[in-house]
Design a protein around this nucleic acid. Structure first.
Lengths: 156, 156
DNA sequence: GTGATATAGGACCATTTTAGTCCTCTTTGC
DNA sequence: GCAAAGAGGACTAAAATGGTCCTATATCAC
């Protein structure tokens, strides 16, 4: 269903929570309480986010996590990629041509374009957007139907 | 990785193959040979596509599958939904409010908007696009960065 | 009406992925 | 030194996925 994993979903919620007070340091325990998720899971998620450079961590007492960049500069793509790895709709979206069906596939190119479009879309959604409650506007809604190409692909 | 399942990928390839001669009837065996995938798998995929109304099937000798609509009227969304169920990035994208974390989540609305944007994007990609080898153009690439909203979400 | 050709519809299993927990180690501040 | 916090990884249980196979049903040709 083109779905995010639960962990990614948690990550978004946690990041949003942090983004709402971006200058404070947040401990895993604190966040776990706030988002009502079990501590070990929150801890794991935070570690992944930190390892991928979205959060700065400090150990020891008075430690915790802070955003590594302002909320406006952290994108949905970043968060998804941090938890799930590189975004791509198909196997061959990033692998370097190790798909032995490439010849007969015939749709790889266009899938990759679609994939790229989604990535671009997600690049345009920032943590600041996610964290605020007011609706964000995305441009895709309207124009896409009008961009249809000459429909070939018929033969008979 | 926001990835399609393999089956969905197969479905796209198979549908594209059919779309290249849309007036012919295609048997599972025939298609399996053409796309170089095992027959049982191709059969299963075809059944799912037929059950979801994307293909018309005919049994018996001289049977096979035909597109139920012209390639320009079958979308990537249709194909994905046929194999994977409704498209949505998060659990709560379609379920009717059975998420007990809804209160503390704080990002549900905006995720749903993103989800919707992706769906719209995929609605704009037709089988005719996928089947042709020339590049399709998608509108999202350019304008999205410019639509950013007033970045609130700071507190300190 | 019989037989060959196809799909329909599930049951089934093996494998992989995912979610979630826990343990031990290191860092930091007091 | 001790308590608070994160780092890193091992581990398990559960779920999703991919793939195969079997039986039933429809259709056509003869």
């Amino acid at each position: 269903m083109l779905k995010l994993s639960k962990l990614t979903d948690y990550a978004a919620v946690i990041m949003a929570q942090i983004a709402r007070s971006p200058s404070d340091s947040h401990t895993a325990a604190e966040l776990a309480t706030q988002v009502k998720l079990p501590l070990p899971t929150v801890g794991k998620t935070l570690k992944m986010l930190a390892k991928n450079g979205l959060l700065e961590s400090r150990r020891g007492s008075h430690g915790g996590y802070v955003l590594s960049r302002p909320p406006g500069e952290i994108t949905a793509s970043d968060i998804i990629a941090a938890i799930e790895g590189p975004i791509g709709m198909t196997e061959c979206s990033h692998a370097d041509g190790d798909c032995e069906l490439f010849e007969t596939c015939g749709v790889a190119d266009n899938w990759q374009r679609v994939s790229q479009a989604i990535r671009t879309l997600l690049d345009g959604v920032t943590l600041a957007h996610l964290a605020q409650s007011s609706p964000i506007k995305l441009p895709v809604q309207l124009p896409i139907q009008s961009v249809t190409l000459p429909v070939t692909a018929s033969k008979a």
